[in-house]
Every structure is written in C-alpha cells, then in structure tokens.
Computed example of a mutant assay.
Amino acid sequence: MKNDLPDLFPGFDSMTVDVNDVHLFCRIGGSGPPLLLLHGYPQSHICWHKIAPQLAEHFTVVLPDLPGYGRSSVPPLSDDHAAYSKRNIAAAMVELMKVLGHTTFSLAGHDRGGRVAYRLALDHPEMLTKVAVLDILPTCDYWDRMDRLFGLKIYHWMFLAQAAPFPENMISAAPVAFLDHTLASWTAAKDLSCFSKEAMTHNRDWFCEPDRVSATCEDYRAGARIDYEHDRSDLDAGKKIQPPLLALWGSKGIATSVDDPLEVWRGWSANVTGAAVACGHFLPEEAPQETVAALIAFFRNTAELS
C-alpha cells in the first residue's frame, strides 16, 4: 500500500487502535458529541471525505476502516466466517469508541457499514444515542426477497459469498476493472463522475491487495450465513432497534428494490424516520449536501441535549 496517497482529511488526526485482535485505522476530527461513521463495499473511510468537514463542525467525527478494508488489519478467514460477522465487527467498534473515551455515541453507516450499524444498535443499544443507515435493508430481508430481478440487481451478494478462493481469484485477475465497474454500476449516472480522482486513487490502491480482496469476500460470506442467522433470530424473537433510527436511500439506489424501504425498517425499529435522496447508492459522494444536511438535522437534536 502506498504511503504518498492524497490527504482528503486535512486537520484530522490519523491513528491505528488495537481492539479485539484487530488493528483499526481511523481518522478523527472536529469537536462536540461523538459520531462514528462506517463505510461500505468496495470502499474505505475515504467515502466520507466530502461530508466529514461539515459534520466535524458539530461533532467529534470518528472514521475507521472496517476490518480487512483500507488500512485496517485483515482478520483470518474461517469456516464459520465469524471474524467478519457484523456482530463481531460491531463489538470491535464499541471497544474502539471506549478506547477513544466515548461511552455513548451516534452512528451512521453506509452499505456494509450500515449492517454493522444496525447490528450494533440491536446488540448494544445502551451505547447509542441515534443510528442512521444509508441505502440498505436488513440482511435477512435481502436474502428472503431474492428473486430473478433482485438477483440481477445485487448479483455480487451471491458471487462474493461463494467459497474461497473462487471469487477472490476472479477479482484479483483484474481488480481495478472490477472495482471501477462495481462503483460505476451502482451510481445513478452509471459512471465514476461522482468520485473524486483522489478518492479513486485510494480505492484502487488497497483494492489491488489480494488479502484485502479476500477479506471483502469473507464479509459477504458472513452475510450469507452467520449474519443472516443473527438477523433471523432477532426478527423471529420480535427484537427491535431501540435507538431512534434514520433510514436514507438513493432514489436510484439498491434499497429501492422494494416499494417502500421505510416500511421494511418499521418492522425492525421502534422509532424510525427516513426518506429518499435523489441519487444512486453512494449518498455521501453522489449527493453530499443533501446527505450531510439530513444527518446533521437528525443527530443534532440529540447532540444539543447531551
């Protein structure tokens, strides 16, 4: 991994924090109540670079790379995929925030980070003031709704979840081409125009590392198995997300695979609000102003009371 990558977070500190047998690289900036931001696939904390400065005017913003992504360490693969379960990663994020001195915090997650976010809300509700999820539905809802048309829309769920090392070998034959196609295909414009040149330099750098490609596949293998089981168990038991939840989705994003994403989240949350944003899947980069305005409006009510 290159050491001369462009700095997209001027004024933010950089550090690596050891928690639960994983080394988490993160950026920290701003002041005020703590706000944890979690990225998705196939990205890193860099996806927040357009909106992090505005959020830092109101919050202490913490931006880690998920395990195996970006500059965080790569946990070993296993038959049960437990190291990449959203339950395990959520527990690591709780410990990260404790190490940084935050006993409670707000949380927003996009894509895979959104899955960590709602799992953290289910498993550790006492830690959260509020939680936001960007352009996702719960994992078991996606799998249970999988049909011909949905399968074509999120084919990568089935491809990446295949047994190692098949998907990683296929991707590693042309990692940049796969990355660029994946990112472009999930935008409203179907191109890379919403991603800055500097952000793409970061994305392409770490995604060319075979062990990190393997880690991202393991993330999806966990989603198809252990994460699904955790979700199904909570849903069958009637367990609800207790902290206030904001669901945002792109009007041309992946979560629009159902007619009413908010109605799906009402089945999981005791207190949910949300709306569509005019963009594709990548809200923080396709529609940064609309996204940051929605997040500030949602989180500041809690921030001003804390």
Rank of each mutant, 00 (worst) to 15 (best):
M97P: 02
M97E: 07
V99D: 12
G101K: 02
G101P: 04
H102T: 03
T103S: 15
T104C: 12
T104V: 09
T104M: 12
F105R: 00
S106N: 07
L107A: 00
L107E: 04
A108W: 03
G109F: 06
G109L: 08
G109I: 01
H110M: 05
H110D: 06
D111N: 08
D111C: 07
R112H: 13
R112D: 11
R112K: 11
G114V: 05
G114K: 01
V116N: 07
A117P: 00
A117M: 11
Y118P: 00
Y118D: 04
L120P: 01
L122C: 09
L122D: 08
L122G: 03
L122H: 12
M127Y: 14
M127N: 10
M127S: 13
M127G: 06
K130M: 13
V131T: 00
V131R: 01
A132C: 09
D135P: 09
I136T: 00
L137E: 09
P138G: 07
P138C: 10
C140M: 15
D141M: 10
D141C: 12
Y142C: 07
W143A: 07
D144Y: 09
D144K: 05
M146P: 07
D147S: 10
D147K: 02
R148M: 14
R148V: 14
G151R: 06
G151T: 03
G151K: 06
Y155P: 01
H156C: 06
W157M: 02
W157N: 01
W157E: 07
M158E: 15
Q162S: 04
Q162T: 05
A164V: 08
F166M: 14
F166N: 13
P167Q: 10
E168R: 03
E168Y: 11
N169E: 15
M170H: 14
I171R: 00
I171P: 00
I171F: 10
S172C: 14
A173H: 13
A173E: 14
A173S: 15
A173Y: 11
A174M: 10
A174D: 15
H181Q: 10
T182S: 13
T182K: 05
T182H: 15
L183M: 09
S185I: 04
T187F: 11
T187R: 01
A189G: 06
A189K: 11
A189F: 13
K190G: 12
D191Y: 10
L192G: 05
L192H: 07
L192K: 02
C194T: 03
F195L: 12
F195H: 06
E198R: 03
M200H: 09
M200V: 05
M200G: 03
T201N: 11
T201A: 15
H202W: 13
H202R: 01
N203M: 13
D205M: 08
W206E: 04
F207P: 06
C208W: 06
C208V: 03
C208P: 06
E209C: 13
E209S: 11
P210A: 05
P210I: 01
R212H: 07
V213W: 01
S214M: 10
S214D: 11
A215S: 02
T216Q: 12
C217H: 02
E218S: 08
D219W: 09
D219T: 00
Y220Q: 01
Y220L: 02
R221S: 02
R221N: 02
A222M: 04
A222H: 02
G223K: 00
A224H: 12
R225Y: 14
R225T: 15
I226M: 05
